[in-house]
Simulated assay, not measured.
Amino acid sequence: MNDGSLEFCLPSDDAALLARVRGIAPAIRAGSSRGRARCDVPAETLYFFPTGDAECTARHGALEDAAWDQVCRIAALPEVREIVPTWYE
């Protein structure tokens, strides 16, 4: 369950790492806050991995295998401390 995405932080000044992550998951988008992932702004940038119809079996459902693969590949990067669900309050 989440509100449409998962969150993680990446170092703000590492263009090569960002390109690598976008190669894994092209649909990620940047945010401007600390988010639930508690990014250390400005040293880190918040990113959202979408969990919509293309990535999940149903609204608020399980991730499809391809999306799980992307999330696991991102999670395996040493620069990614954690991946957390997005909750809008």
Score class of each variant (00 low, 15 high):
residue 6 L to G: 02
residue 72 C to R: 12
residue 40 D to V: 14
residue 61 G to W: 10
residue 12 S to V: 03
residue 12 S to T: 07
residue 7 E to I: 06
residue 58 A to W: 14
residue 17 L to S: 09
residue 9 C to H: 03
residue 1 M to K: 10
residue 60 H to L: 13
residue 67 A to C: 06
residue 57 T to H: 11
residue 51 T to Q: 03
residue 25 A to C: 09
residue 70 Q to R: 15
residue 82 E to S: 15
residue 49 F to Y: 11
residue 18 L to K: 15
residue 47 Y to L: 05
residue 7 E to A: 06
residue 85 P to V: 07
residue 68 W to N: 10
residue 17 L to T: 09
residue 19 A to E: 11
residue 33 S to N: 08
residue 43 A to D: 08
residue 38 R to N: 11
residue 23 G to Q: 07
residue 6 L to E: 02
residue 42 P to V: 00
residue 76 A to K: 02
residue 72 C to D: 14
residue 77 L to G: 06
residue 30 A to Q: 13
residue 82 E to G: 12
residue 75 A to K: 01
residue 23 G to D: 01
residue 20 R to F: 01
residue 43 A to H: 15
residue 76 A to S: 12
residue 52 G to M: 01
residue 5 S to D: 07
residue 49 F to L: 09
residue 80 V to Q: 01
residue 83 I to N: 04
residue 24 I to K: 11
residue 72 C to G: 10
residue 24 I to S: 03
residue 44 E to S: 04
residue 39 C to S: 04
residue 13 D to N: 15
residue 53 D to F: 14
residue 22 R to I: 00
residue 40 D to R: 15
residue 23 G to T: 09
residue 66 A to M: 04
residue 45 T to D: 11
residue 42 P to I: 02
residue 3 D to T: 08
residue 39 C to E: 02
residue 40 D to L: 12
residue 72 C to P: 00
residue 57 T to C: 07
residue 7 E to S: 07
residue 36 R to D: 07
residue 38 R to P: 05
residue 68 W to R: 11
residue 70 Q to C: 01
residue 5 S to Q: 02
residue 13 D to F: 10
residue 57 T to N: 11
residue 7 E to N: 06
residue 67 A to T: 04
residue 42 P to N: 11
residue 9 C to W: 02
residue 60 H to A: 14
residue 1 M to R: 09
residue 64 E to D: 05
residue 78 P to G: 05
residue 79 E to P: 01
residue 54 A to T: 10
residue 12 S to M: 00
residue 71 V to T: 09
residue 16 A to L: 07
residue 55 E to H: 12
residue 28 I to E: 08
residue 20 R to G: 00
residue 60 H to S: 13
residue 89 E to G: 15
residue 56 C to D: 00
residue 54 A to M: 05
residue 6 L to S: 02
residue 80 V to R: 03
residue 79 E to N: 04
residue 27 A to Q: 12
residue 57 T to F: 12
residue 2 N to I: 00
residue 49 F to T: 05
residue 51 T to M: 02
residue 57 T to W: 11
residue 26 P to A: 04
